[in-house]
């Protein structure tokens, strides 16, 4: 098994590590960096529970190797929190709209919705559906999630 030295920025903190080439980025984040907010869902790139931002773009961390993240900027759900660890605007909106039940798909949903709001400050319901279309949720039926993203976008616009 070949090992590689990598340097990754995760949530604006730089980590240097030696990893086996076959370790997924998901396992690396969870096991090596103890960032357990990113969840293991299907491990074949369908459910989106493991979504993270990879140089600002939402991707599935189950379908990337840790070595592919060398010299990249990664953001996980923990990185969406304020500096003091409290929930950010989008996360608060998810609480206010009760946009979850079991909370398992939530980190991936937040990552997808965050990426949308970075690009589009006033998304329509259809645009929100498109952005979370690759994130499966079995609890909510999505409606409260869509409402939460709308609430967050409104709050973000009001605060600008």
């Amino acid at each position: 098994m070949s090992s590689h030295n990598i340097r990754i920025s995760v949530n604006e903190k730089t980590y240097r590590s030696t990893v086996d080439s076959r370790i997924t980025l998901l396992d690396f984040l969870r096991n090596d960096l103890s960032l357990t907010g990113t969840h293991v869902g299907c491990e074949h790139g369908v459910c989106g529970a493991c979504s993270i931002l990879y140089d600002g773009t939402p991707v599935r961390s189950c379908s990337l190797l840790a070595i592919q993240a060398d010299k990249r900027q990664i953001t996980t759900v923990e990185g969406l929190c304020n500096a003091d660890g409290s929930p950010g605007v989008l996360q608060k909106a998810f609480c206010d709209a009760h946009a979850m039940q079991c909370g398992y798909c939530t980190p991936g949903m937040l990552i997808s919705a965050h990426a949308l709001l970075e690009q589009n400050s006033n998304p329509s319901a259809d645009e929100i559906k498109e952005s979370i279309g690759g994130n499966l949720c079995r609890c909510t039926g999505y409606i409260q999630i869509i409402e939460a993203v709308q609430l967050a976008s409104q709050r973000l616009r009001n605060s600008r």
């Binding site: 960032l35 929190c81 609480c95 206010d96 009760h98 939530t106």
Partner: peptide
């Protein structure tokens, strides 16, 4: 009223069985 459980889930600080080390 807010659901008490929600805040830990949005922050990625829920404690699922896979998180037990």
């Amino acid at each position: 009223r807010r659901v008490i459980e929600d805040e830990r889930f949005v922050c990625g600080t829920g404690k699922f069985v896979q998180d037990i080390q």
